[in-house]
Design a binder for these strands. Structure first.
Lengths: 226, 226
DNA sequence: TCCTCGACGATCAGGATGCGCATGGAGGGG
DNA sequence: CCCCTCCATGCGCATCCTGATCGTCGAGGA
């Protein structure tokens, strides 16, 4: 899952970035509204953390522009404490959730998880597909109840697929959501990790759709094979 | 485990802080409601001890604000008198337990322990993971029944992991819950203590998940990895 | 229907990177 | 005075990426 943080205060921004990265997200950080808006418009994010108190362009304006452009990613707005007007205006502008500064990083992470989960249409923090179960809260994966050890990248890849269960996900889409800005897009790393995951979870977990990408199906919901 | 004490009387506050620290908690002390509220909103606490008779802002108000902001840590309220009205109001405001002044520090610690235990979803004061057993009441750790001597920090670290058994805990999360406010976050102390604990309890007690953090698994519940 | 060929995906092994581990020593507190 | 805590350094290894090779699928023609 890839996150954009738009936060003008460098210290807080960097701290957030590193915390989120430790939690398995790919994170881009922008420190002003204009740059932030550009990133949000051009790159693919699964969620955006947006500070309202930005220099130059206001956070609300940025949010409004995104929504007008049709960007649909969930936005978590950081507002100064007690500003009800901000809250209302933010809702109108299309924010999905709020957090008043100051806040606890754990809560931020929890809300972020919830946002991403909701955005992908899931209701529980546990995602399942056949014998595979992924708990987004504890960050663990089990196969038939047995815990499976995944590396960071393997987890990111599997997590994205499970959040989009049944959908065909192209390789570029995966790259855009698993890695942050600076990454060489011409490589076969995705294939490599797909192979790895198949080795650990079974070959039939991830289906290849030639020329299009990959898809993770739930055999319980789709009894017949292909 | 990290505790916040909000207590206006300096003597009592300091005494509590030192007592709790001797019992293996990381403690922040605040002497007025405003500061206390701020700390509780920004930092990560596993429990809060809140005196109701505060100057400026009342303890109940502070508690109410926290709950309205969505802070979920358990709160142990200290009330000066045997006043029922305080108790009722406190319950409404979201307190989890009570203690009437004057009280025995022993009792305070016992209740605190119970609060933290409940908050982490454990039912017993004894936490076990494989051959390792940790008694939160006596603060003792045994390996295959044999008592093991842990230093204060080693105990704190192990305790936090055991309270969150099975969850992947990032290094920042550990730092936030084991140390109090003023601590340099860029250091490798966590690794050092993990190493120490492994030496004393066996290398397989704590699992490393590269790039994400550590996790303490219970082999009884999860027979084997890979 | 079968064969051929092209294109795409899977797999493997080698190597760079950086994370986490170990260790020793300085500093501080009991 | 001793032990605990913390910081710094160097090292080893898991992890990740790369590039090459092998395998597979499917279209089109005979």
């Amino acid at each position: 899952m890839r996150i954009l943080i738009v936060e003008d205060e460098p210290t807080l921004g960097k701290q957030l970035k590193s915390t989120l990265e430790q939690n398995g997200y790919a994170v881009d950080l922008s420190t002003d509204g204009e740059d932030g808006h550009f990133l949000g418009s051009t790159e693919e994010y699964d969620a955006v953390i947006l500070d309202l108190g930005l220099p130059e362009i206001d956070g609300l304006t940025v949010l409004g522009m995104w929504r007008k452009e049709g960007r649909k990613f969930p936005v978590l707005v950081l507002t100064a404490r007690d500003s009800w007007s901000d809250k209302v205006a933010g809702l109108d502008a299309g924010a999905d959730d709020y957090l008043a500064k100051p806040f606890q990083t754990e809560e931020l992470i929890a809300r972020l998880r919830a946002l991403i989960r909701r955005a992908s249409g899931n209701t529980s923090s546990e995602l399942t597909a056949g014998p595979v179960r992924l708990d987004t809260r504890s960050g663990r994966v089990t196969l038939d109840g047995e815990p499976v050890k995944l590396t960071a990248q393997e987890y990111k890849l599997l997590s994205y697929l499970m959040h989009h269960k049944g959908k065909v996900v192209s390789r570029t889409e995966l790259i855009e959501h698993i890695y942050d800005q600076d990454f060489d897009r011409d490589s076969n790393t995705i294939e490599v990790f797909v192979t790895r995951i198949r080795k650990k979870l079974g070959a039939d977990v991830i289906t290849t759709i030639r020329g299009l990408g990959y898809s993770l199906d739930d055999p319980d919901e789709q009894p017949r094979a292909n």
